[in-house]
């Protein structure tokens, strides 16, 4: 073992020696060091991505072997004109906006609460993070059970509190199904937003607040003119991450409603999954993923522009 390590060190030294000659630049060393990563990325990301783009212009159904052929943009027309396609895009966008808004507001409140100095702060921070550590499918099934009309606690609590809705069969209606999905998703993902926002809060220097206070700024003005602007970079990161994963939502829906009732909770990513894994239609599935990927990139670029930190 020691011998092997010794040899590796020797080889490393030799390498550095060769590159530290007068004509060798630090850039070349850099290129060499990132080469394995780049090659790996090209292999596991680049190849499938390009193959996927190629497939999206083909009729390519695995259960129909030997019939692959070029069909131009037909798969892409289906992305927008297929059964339920437009509604699925609408649902996806609406879901993204609503879920990210809810989670952002609650996440910010949590972050502010976790940032304050009080006894037991460590416990609160740990407790808030617990849902995030639970796998999505587990948390989704947990909430499906919680909303179950026979055995769930939600209807029981509504009944005890004499609130309306105690007899709701949640997964039977369009909006009630979405409610279950939104709650499950918020429970799982709000801690992630809170965590990122908290890290942003911690780097804001205290003296800024003190100065603002001396200048007579109240708590709301301090939040608006000090906290929010300085939190921008964290907000940017948090929103990009959450928006993209909400836009590509699949797991919660798969576990809770399976896209039902009917097609009421069918999203674009769900259509994508069905195209690939139920219909084994790699042409259509490929086209859906290409459009999804481009949309995701556009969303990310939009956030970077809108939330560009002011200098």
């Amino acid at each position: 073992m020691a011998e092997v390590r010794g040899k590796a060190v020797e080889r490393g030294l030799h390498l550095r020696e060769r590159l530290s000659g007068p004509e060798a630049s630090a850039e070349r060393l850099g290129a060499l060091l990132i080469a394995p990563t780049v090659i790996l990325l090209v292999l596991i990301v680049g190849y499938p991505a390009f193959y996927n783009i190629y497939a999206s212009f083909q009729y390519f159904v695995l259960t129909d072997p030997g019939t692959e052929h070029f069909i131009g943009l037909q798969n892409y027309t289906r992305v927008f004109s297929g059964v339920d396609s437009l509604s699925a895009w609408g649902r996806t966008i609406l879901y993204t906006v609503i879920s990210v808004a809810i989670q952002f507001v609650i996440g910010l409140v949590f972050a502010l609460a976790m940032h304050q100095n009080y006894r037991g702060r460590g416990v609160v921070r740990a407790a808030v993070l617990v849902p995030w550590a639970v796998p999505t499918v587990v948390s989704a099934l947990l909430w499906k059970t919680n909303f179950d009309p026979r055995i769930g606690f939600v209807n029981y609590l509504l009944g005890v509190a004499h609130l309306p809705g105690a007899n709701t069969t949640w997964l039977n209606g369009v909006w009630t199904s979405w409610t279950v999905i939104l709650v499950a998703d918020a429970w799982k993902n709000t801690p992630f937003l809170a965590l990122i926002l908290l890290s942003g809060l911690q780097v804001i220097p205290d003296d800024l607040y003190e100065q603002a206070q001396i200048d007579g700024a109240g708590i709301l003005r301090r939040f608006w003119y000090v906290t929010l602007p300085l939190l921008k970079p964290s907000i940017q990161v948090a929103l990009i991450f959450r928006t993209l994963s909400a836009f590509l939502v699949f797991d919660v829906i798969y576990a809770i409603t399976g896209g039902g009732p009917g097609n009421a909770t069918n999203t674009v990513a769900f259509i994508n999954w069905r195209a690939f894994l139920v219909d084994t239609d790699f042409g259509y599935g490929g086209a859906v993923s290409v459009v999804l990927t481009i949309s995701a990139l556009l969303i990310a670029v939009a956030y970077l522009r809108i939330l560009r930190p002011s200098t």
């Binding site: 039977n172 209606g173 039902g260 009732p261 009917g262 097609n263 009421a264």
Partner: peptide, 12 residues
């Protein structure tokens, strides 16, 4: 599956 379930949940 989609259509039958949609009718049973009274959407169509």
């Amino acid at each position: 599956q989609t259509q039958l379930n949609a009718a049973l949940s009274n959407q169509v």
